[in-house]
Simulated assay, not measured.
Amino acid sequence: MNQKRTFGSILTVLGIIGIILGALGFLGIGGLGLSKMNSLVPFVVGLIFFFAGINLVRTTGDRA
Rank of each mutant, 00 (worst) to 15 (best):
L32D: 04
R5E: 12
V41R: 12
G25D: 04
V41Q: 12
V45M: 11
L47E: 05
L40Y: 08
F7W: 09
I54F: 08
R58E: 12
R5K: 15
F26A: 12
S9H: 03
K36R: 14
L40M: 15
F51R: 06
I20E: 02
M1C: 10
N38F: 11
G30M: 07
G53C: 08
L47V: 15
L40Q: 11
I17Q: 04
V41G: 00
V13T: 13
N2S: 15
N55E: 11
T60V: 04
A64H: 08
N55I: 06
M1D: 10
R5M: 11
G22V: 00
V41D: 08
G25A: 07
G31V: 02
M1E: 10
G31I: 04
R5T: 13
I20Q: 00
P42Y: 09
T60I: 07
A52F: 12
L27M: 15
T6D: 06
T12G: 06
K4R: 13
I29K: 10
I16F: 11
R5V: 14
I17G: 01
G30R: 05
I54Q: 14
V45F: 11
I48E: 09
L24S: 03
G28N: 12
T59M: 09
I19A: 08
T60A: 13
V57Q: 14
G15I: 01
S39I: 02
G46S: 07
F7Y: 10
N2C: 10
L14E: 03
K4H: 09
K4T: 13
T12Y: 06
L47I: 14
